[in-house]
Write a protein that binds this DNA or RNA. Structure first.
Lengths: 231, 231
DNA sequence: GAAACCAAATCGTCATACTTTTGAGCGTGT
DNA sequence: ACACGCTCAAAAGTATGACGATTTGGTTTC
């Protein structure tokens, strides 16, 4: 998943710094400066910058340098950009944005999944729902999180829509970030758990409307809780 | 918006070819081959490949070459990837995916817009709705399309959610592609026009629920129409 | 037949030189 | 004082040659 090699190292330094605003919008970097700062060659700097340019985080212009672009031009759907923002100082804003996105997408995905999921996927959802129930009772937060991520990713994948499916990792990052954020909450609420079971059952039964409604309750609840935490 | 220079030229050749499947999944390119084929230097090839790698279209490995990745790993939210796919042979699939995405996102964005839009944006929506009505009557398809794009982009922007806002361009591409696709339809249906006005009014009035419902009707209708066209 | 080994292919990195664009300063003329 | 254009230098863009690192696949050896 990660970008490899020395350019990858540069990216891992510059990306988060820009995403967090440490290198502010409008700041100008020169490639020679970067070469020295990281002790790498022109080639490496250029390739790293090219990648950042692809994400629209920076723009490189002759005679002026590499300028950090305003947030509004960033490719906010790029998985790396999302991760960097989640890791840095505007994690709250990023979580809020993603929260709204989930409220929009996941119910629709659940409805589609009810229609298009394979038998394997339906089975997997059922079993994940059971796992969730059990690990919640055991207050095993870590494996609970893992299964929660798998559950939502499976629903998204089962929607048979590539774009929804690709949000699986992102949602995973959100769930992880959220868990870290309110530092291991008071055991997962049984209400949310029941809703997950409901989603699984509705998808198994091919009941799109029910699946959508239950999923909407889940993600809307998560968003509300998030907004309280960040208030 | 475009990527500049010689790497940009390479991208403009390779990207669409890969997106269209002309260079199939698993195909292997060697950088030397690309240098010769395009008459450019290693530097240029490497930078172009790096960008494609950033989009997860290809992966470069030592001793093996540059291999085209399976579709499932592509960054399907990358604006360039979307454009390339829309331009090529899997435009239908891409339009379907984007259609579902619109059904999920735009109603939610309309609801948010009803709450968060600035006065300017509300004014702009009203005036765009009027323009739509008029150009539809005049059967001026080109300016109709332009205003339609502006309308949806404004709603997305007014949602005050960066991720929604960034889908503005994508939705624009969809609308353009759709118009080209069923080659200038029998003048825009007055029903859809009325719904646009309804969305604008609801957002002006701050009626989130109404805005959401009307917008959902619009995009769901568009998706249904699309599925008929592609059936 | 399996394990160790070797060699070729290919990308990865570096150093350097040359080219192209463009911003800024300077000067000239109105 | 202002505008216009000229020149120069700074920075990215491109090209090239050399070397390093790594993976693959075949070959040898036990």
């Amino acid at each position: 998943m990660e970008i490899q090699g020395l350019p990858g190292r540069l990216l891992a330094e510059l990306g988060p710094a820009i995403a967090a605003g440490e290198i502010p919008e409008g700041a100008v970097l020169r490639s020679e400066e970067l070469e020295e700062r990281f002790g790498v060659s022109r080639t490496v700097v250029r390739e790293a910058v090219r990648i950042l340019e692809g994400m629209r985080l920076v723009a490189s212009r002759r005679r002026v340098g590499i300028t950090v672009q305003p947030r509004s031009t960033w490719d906010v759907f790029d998985p790396l950009v999302i991760r960097w923002r989640l890791a840095g100082s505007d994690r709250p804003a990023q979580l809020r944005s993603l929260g709204s996105l989930r409220v929009a997408v996941e119910p629709a995905a659940a409805a589609l999944a009810a229609r298009h999921a394979t038998d394997d996927e339906r089975r997997e959802l059922s079993s994940l729902a059971v796992e969730l129930t059990m690990t919640a009772r055991a207050a095993d937060l870590e494996t609970f999180l893992r299964h929660d991520i798998a559950f939502h990713a499976t629903v998204l994948r089962a929607s048979r829509n590539e774009m929804f499916a690709h949000l699986g990792d992102t949602v995973g990052a959100v769930l992880t970030g959220r868990t870290e954020y309110h530092l291991m909450p008071h055991q997962p609420e049984s209400y949310a758990i029941r809703l997950h079971r409901e989603v699984a059952e509705a998808i198994c039964a091919g009941d799109a409307e029910h699946a959508e409604r239950a999923m909407r309750t889940i993600v809307a609840g998560a968003l509300e809780e998030l907004n309280q935490q960040l208030a």
